[in-house]
């Protein structure tokens, strides 16, 4: 399934602008296009529950997103701006969020 590719952690070619939030680096901006509960790994909470938690924190389709900071070790967790809220989350959960990233402006 193509969905599996989108939620995977593996970085894809830079011209593919629709990727999981977990693959993003500092300064990347875009719009959320899909929020799912599946991260592709076993989680402590059910997929439906993770999806609801993400939605409640403002990770909803159509929201503007920008990666503000990354942690020191493994560039994890990440601090992101979702519309006008700042949220910290791990890359692990960020796999459940798919983002259409803005093209590179040179």
């Amino acid at each position: 399934m193509s969905d599996a590719v989108l939620t995977a952690d593996t970085p894809v070619a830079s011209d593919a602008s629709i990727r999981a939030l977990s693959t993003a680096g500092r300064g990347d901006k875009g719009v959320i296009v899909a929020v799912r509960g599946e991260t592709g790994a076993p989680e402590a909470v059910a997929a439906e529950e993770l999806e609801r938690r993400l939605l409640e924190m403002g990770f909803v389709e159509g929201a503007r997103i920008e990666i503000l900071q990354e942690g020191l070790f493994g560039r994890d967790p990440i601090a992101v701006r979702v519309d006008d809220t700042r949220v910290a989350l791990r890359r692990r959960e960020a796999r459940a969020v798919t983002v259409q990233f803005d093209g590179k402006t040179l």
Binding site: L50, T85, A88, R90
Partner: peptide
């Protein structure tokens, strides 16, 4: 062993 609880919090 096993699963990890999600970490998600607002930065006020």
């Amino acid at each position: 062993r096993g699963t990890v609880e999600p970490f998600m919090m607002e930065l006020p």
